[in-house]
Amino acid sequence: MALELEILGIHAGYGAVRALQGVSMQVRDGETVALLGTNGNGKSTLMKCVMGNVRPTSGQILLKLDGVPHDLTRLSTEEIVGLGVALVPEGRRLFPRLTVEENLLLGAFRREARPHIAKNLELCYETFSVLKERRRQLAGSMSGGQQQMLAIARALMSSPKLLLVDEPSVGLSPLLVSNTVTMIKQLKEKHGLTVLMAEQNFHQAIRIADRGYLIVHGEIVFEGRTVEELEHNDMVKNYYLGTA
């Protein structure tokens, strides 16, 4: 199924604070797109807009499935999940007092996902064997790295086609960040996912990205059509890597 995410000039904010000012970007079928930017530049807000948690004040977010456009700004979060979009939220946001298995089952809450629960659960346990060992344990009692695995696995339980990953590096050691990013790449290839990843760790992000956008103060200031373009762009160096 051909999928394309097109974000057209969205503005969004919280009260008087404007977080996004006319952001436009595109994610095409099978790509891994990195959304780069340091803290407080609107990456998470953009993710929340796509998920329907934050309503843009203007602009459109179109998810085209086989050429049929769905305007996500008009749909509820459940409906968006129902279309095959899943989010691995920033800071993981698990259900700490529920067991690992319950966390996973909650990822498959929507009716369309329920018939595939057994298969998806097995797939998750196969990919993340530590989750199988700990499936009766409370999610909040696991280590940060394990929780990140669970957050990713939970998102996969809805059999998504488009996976949004918001800052997988938050609160993890450099080695775990590297493992997590590698894991995302493997899962993407295995399940044929399209991935949009917001990340401030530039070097980790471009390891798996096909291309990327740089967001500064709620505006896309640079679009790199290849990883090389990102690496050699002055703005990226200036705003982001501090090496200009």
């Binding site: 948690n53 979060t77 946001r93 929507r110 996902a113």
Partner: peptide, 11 residues
Amino acid sequence: DNEGAAECSGV
């Protein structure tokens, strides 16, 4: 446990 996360998971 986490209403925001529940919403994001499609609950």
